[in-house]
């Protein structure tokens, strides 16, 4: 691989733009209010609190369908990002495709098992996914979300995914 002779901040800005492009290309990700932040190659998903996400009006708790979807998106984008990263590092046509906003489709969910540990409060939530196995075709991912304390997740999940062709 020929190294790109570019300053680090240019490379990092391009990576951030690609990450935003990958996730914001999906209408439902934007409707739910999910965004991603990146420290090196570690991604953190953020579900910004909105009143429309409430599932229990008495407790003021987030809907399990909304928080479950947040975990699924975090798992898919974390997996999809590894593919985008490879394409950018490869340079040539693959990197050019990312530069013009031609992102690979997100991995397809095969199954998703959700564990509702405690109610999600009416505030922002954060999630990180761990790729347990990443083959060319199948991947296994665990993911959990927290609010005020990283050590107290309120929902966790394990899922299996079919990687996009290519």
């Amino acid at each position: 691989m020929a190294p790109r002779r570019e300053p680090a901040h240019v490379v990092e800005a391009r990576r951030d733009a690609a990450l935003a492009g990958l996730s914001h290309a999906v209408p439902f990700v934007n409707e739910l209010g999910v965004s991603f932040e990146r420290l090196g190659d570690e991604l953190t998903g953020k579900l910004s609190y909105q009143e429309k996400l409430i599932g229990n009006p008495v407790l003021g708790a987030l809907h399990g369908g909304a928080t479950g979807a947040f975990l699924e998106i975090t798992a898919q984008v974390t997996l999809g990002w590894t593919r985008v990263w490879e394409m950018m590092e490869a340079g040539g046509d693959a990197a050019a495709a990312i530069d013009r906003g031609d992102y690979p489709a997100l991995p397809k969910t095969i199954d998703f098992s959700l564990d509702y540990l405690r109610p999600g409060g009416a505030r922002d939530s954060y999630a990180r996914a761990t790729i347990r196995r990443a083959g060319r075709r199948y991947a296994s991912v665990s993911v959990e979300a927290w609010q005020e304390e990283r050590s107290r997740p309120f929902i966790s999940a394990v899922g299996h995914f079919l990687m996009p062709e290519g």
């Binding site: 290309a25 999906v26 209408p27 439902f28 990700v29 409707e31 739910l32 809907h63 399990g64 369908g65 909304a66 479950g68 979807a69 947040f70 699924e72 998106i73 489709a105 997100l106 969910t109 998703f112 959700l114």
Partner: peptide, 24 residues
Amino acid sequence: DSRWVGDPSTGVLHGGVLTALLDA
């Protein structure tokens, strides 16, 4: 609803929308 699409190239709904439906 096109707002709940997960794959813009096909128009297929995102699985996360079904999560809410199945849970509810």
